[in-house]
Design a protein around this nucleic acid. Structure first.
Lengths: 258, 258
DNA sequence: GCGTCGGCTTCCGTTGAGTGGAAGGGTGGG
DNA sequence: CCCACCCTTCCACTCAACGGAAGCCGACGC
């Protein structure tokens, strides 16, 4: 390979992937110099590798010279099991729920100690929420998060409860004991709720989505307040969740929740 | 580099990308040998490169030893402008439309001579359609396709009309003269319709989405039949389309329709 | 239970793809 | 007009990458 390299042993593939990895939610458009910095590469090296990524369609160069993630990565991302399995199969159920409630509807999975939002439906009438597809939010402060945490392995629960529970609003549950009791109730009632714990003006209800007894996702909705609609909402969510679980069982190839 | 190579001059990056490019809609799970074949690489070479892609999260190995597109590509795909620009900004409008009609709602852009479905909303009550997010369908047989074709550059229209127009149902418009006249009417009426031209039992209406006078996408819905609801549907679609166009104009960084 | 086959994994001598500092061009701002 | 920064190109040097061969492993047929 090269006579001199700033990072001996690094492969070409890892460098190219480092360039792709330079993009994130807060860095969607990057100049060449920014890319090089974020990927820890010299500018000429970044320049060569970026040109190849652009040729293939992994990156795209905008008119202002900056780079963005290319259409081909979007296409490829749609082939990932989280999309073709869980998200796609669940979509009609989520739309049924949305059509019936016009509330924000969430489908989420656990991603280590966080909640990953796999899908989110919302119109203009829905409660504004901070989540969007691909977001990772704290697991202790959302309805779907509490469901996923309640059904997580003991070591995951220990790590979440043993860490500092971030206070996001005055109503966030930050005492481990309180959260533990809530999780026990989630297991008993088979649904979770939040009341302005993630953001003010947003309350939520969520239920587990099971495939063959295993909780693989959580389905939830967000409303300004729960009130006396709670039993009806829980019932609607559970019907949709069972439908999703059944559909997932009928499509074994789509190992959706991993 | 290596003392011997089956494809001299091919870069490491291009080989790694060839492996990613081995996946498509009909090849979502591939064995190592299949990956090597489809990427035109020797198996040991594929083995090494695939291991790196797995390490980074671009690919994932399932329990049965086969590979799928990894979560990190899904994450990255969500950063592409087609997602963060057009799709995300349009989503609330699409959900409003869905909530009002419970019909299948489509958002699409032109991708060369085809329609690319950027978003699709459907519940169980909606008409089953063949499209899904990321699908490319023929531009002459769908409502959104006719809108995009009517507003396409002359050379694009010439290439579509000069090629054989595939007959998908008995009602598909396959005569270039007929399609030309329909496109003229689309420009005049500012909406397009289809009647069981793409699949039986599915009729559609679609309107252009404009950002600063430029047609950047098409918005459509699919129903079992149009009937006397057509004017109301067109009006609802146009309101949503104008809302999307306005929102796109307010977010210049998201060059969504490219 | 054994043998065969196919897929996968590991090895390693050879070599050319890849390296990045230097230099130069272009653009925007002061 | 000058300066600073970003981007692009060059090229001597070298080590990362190459893939056939060999071996391992699991499934399948007899």
């Amino acid at each position: 390979m090269a006579g001199r390299t700033s990072s001996p042993g690094a492969s070409v593939t890892s460098r190219a992937l480092a360039l792709l990895g330079a993009f994130d939610e807060t860095h969607r458009r990057l100049s060449l110099t920014e890319l090089a910095e974020r990927a820890a590469l010299p500018v000429p090296t970044a320049h060569r590798l970026v040109a190849e990524l652009v040729d293939w369609g992994a990156l795209s160069r905008a008119d202002d010279g900056r780079y963005v993630v290319g259409r081909r990565v979007w296409d490829l991302g749609l082939l990932a099991p989280v999309q073709t399995g869980l998200r796609q199969l669940a979509s009609p159920y989520l739309h049924d729920l949305y059509g019936a409630t016009l509330a924000t509807v969430h489908l989420a999975v656990r991603d280590e100690l966080e909640v990953l939002y796999v899908d989110r439906l919302a119109g203009h009438a829905s409660v504004p929420v901070v989540s969007q597809v691909g977001s990772r939010l704290p697991i202790h402060a959302t309805g779907v998060g509490k469901v996923l945490l309640a059904h997580a392995p003991q070591d995951v629960q220990a790590r979440v409860l043993g860490a500092r529970l971030a206070r996001l609003t005055a109503y966030t549950v930050t005492q481990p004991g309180s959260l533990r009791r809530q999780l026990a109730r989630v297991l008993r009632d088979d649904y979770a709720t939040t009341t302005e714990e993630m953001s003010l003006g947003a309350c939520s209800v969520a239920v587990p989505v099971r495939r063959d007894q295993e909780v693989v996702a959580a389905l939830g909705i967000v409303l300004p307040r729960l009130g006396k609609d709670r039993p009806r909402l829980v019932a609607a969510l559970q019907v949709a969740a069972r439908g999703i679980g059944r559909t997932l069982s009928e499509h074994p190839a789509g190992d959706a929740a991993r």
